[in-house]
Amino acid sequence: MESFLQYKNLSYFYQTKESEIHALNNINFVVKQKDFASIVGPSGCGKTTMLSLTAGLLQPTDGEILLNNKKIEKNDSRIGYMFQRDHLFEWRTIWQNIILGLEIQKKHKDEKTLCFAEELLKKYDLYNFKNKKPRQLSGGMRQRVALIRTLVLNPTLLLLDEPFSALDFQTRLKVCDDVYQIIKSEEKTALLVTHDISEALSMSDQIIILSSRPASVKKELKINFQGKTPLEKREDKDFGKYFELIWRNLS
């Protein structure tokens, strides 16, 4: 199997004033290219630590993470990060928010990338809101803007840290669907961290269940719903079976 994202004997300790905490213990798994993988686990098990390590914001104590057979560096440009909240800058318009990363990387005068950004806006129904301020948009739209802000930098791997947890349930189902479609149509590999089993189940091709601290891989599941959308998956007869399987492994 071609492995795109690869975790090799990954361990991580972090330091606090009181003690040293063993957060991750010998984690091994791989994610295929263009797959959507989710990490679920009991709260406080180190899911977000996993993402920070994958994003290169933290360095592993032991072991390594390979992306396309190359070790992930500090602030790796191949990686895009989506946070729990959209973190749109209120003083910038939607367009200015979207090109924030381009500005930082001094690519905001490059015609081709700007065209790409405009295309994304048009494709995902946000073009008419280009000059609006974030507070004029609904929660779901804001989260879509946040995703596009990440996509314009053209990352090969997308990291999602419970990106829907700040939304109400109705919006959440819709945005879940939208984000899934966008990620699939842009052919990105994605790694989602969540505590919501049905969310993981409706989005993923692969689910990694972590044990409680020090976290290790408790179980790995391949999910196959034959190309259904997240909303359709939720209604599939197998959904309940998978759900129970994951739930039993979590508790």
């Binding site: 440009s77 990060y81 973190h87 924030l100 930082i104 990387q105």
Partner: peptide, 13 residues
Amino acid sequence: DNDKILLMKSMHA
């Protein structure tokens, strides 16, 4: 917000 700073950092600011 610290996450906003992280966001900037993740974009190599």
